[in-house]
Design a protein around this nucleic acid. Sequence first.
DNA 1: GTCTATATTACGATAGAC
DNA 2: GTCTATCGTAATATAGAC
Lengths: 205, 205
Amino acid sequence: MARKIGSNGEKTAAELRAAAQRLFARHGYAAVSMRQIASEVGVQVGALYLYIADKQALLFELMDAHMTALSDALEAEPSLGDDPSARLERFVRFHLRWHLERTDAVFISYMELRNLEPQNFAKIEARRREYEDILGGILRDGVAQGVFHLADTRLGVFGIIALLNGVNTWFRAGRRLSLEGVTAIYLDMVRAAVGQKPAAQPSPD
Amino acid sequence: MARKIGSNGEKTAAELRAAAQRLFARHGYAAVSMRQIASEVGVQVGALYLYIADKQALLFELMDAHMTALSDALEAEPSLGDDPSARLERFVRFHLRWHLERTDAVFISYMELRNLEPQNFAKIEARRREYEDILGGILRDGVAQGVFHLADTRLGVFGIIALLNGVNTWFRAGRRLSLEGVTAIYLDMVRAAVGQKPAAQPSPD
DNA sequence: GTCTATATTACGATAGAC
DNA sequence: GTCTATCGTAATATAGAC
């Protein structure tokens, strides 16, 4: 399509979201001004409002896109049949890889919940519960089949999610541990925490 | 000492910190104005500056007081000798109880780190590392004595702290689970995660 | 599509009266 | 010890020129 020279609509829209994500993650939503974002994008502040209704909508769009992409990505993972151990391993591997590749979006999704207006907050929370309930299903099946030993699967979900998300607070690529190394260690901790017998786990890869 | 009627210095100072802690936890440091705090305290904004140098100092004082109280409280716990299992149990029980009784201060101490100026940030981080290294010592001793089986004690510390801190995101007193009920379940998960043999643990209380 | 300019409101912090 | 009033700055968002 013909576009005016110097007109950069789609590019500006993308850069706006990228800059906002970076700045919100670094300094926090409330501490970042629209002027700062505009400066990062390389336009004046007025130009931003061609692409967003207001600052709140910008935050919500970022978080909503993140949660949607998360659910979509998990659904796109190949299924591993009925074996709870295999499904748990798949979940842990997916969760760690996916979250460690998106540190800014993940950080925002956990830190900025309180800056969402009530309706927006409810939508994001619903998406998160959906995602976490997939893990819940794995744990419940595992307990029912006797391969996991867990006093409370609901707390098991909370515990595992918290354990895994904690990695984002300290992991930096290129240090002592690779993603694979971290994943192996955390897999051991998760399997142990759900009371999976070491004998029941498949040969390590 | 004689104090002018209507003069409320110490009370105002305490209420200022209490209000700031409550509001910072609810809405975030950057989103809370000094005017809001003053309104909660029941004074005009100018009066606040009798008790704090500026807003940043107020945040730092809250976080510093929190971390100092945390270290002091852990040190005041009775020692349990050399047995790593007993020390781990003591740590978990202390950490959960202490953190669940101070949800606002805990929330601030994890969420507002990025709003600290560099010097203040360094001080708070040093205090946190000190505290977490106490758990590190327990894990290292346990591994050395063969009662824990953990591939990486440093990641063990990160994992356990994240697991335990996650409780603050969902626990509410007076619901289905009591503090004691939660603690028992989390103790099981922690013991399992560090690879402690169930046979090695003392009789349940 | 972006700019400049601006309306409106709010911020942190201080000065001086009481 | 607290109040009122204010300084100087910056916020979000919009209007209209180009």
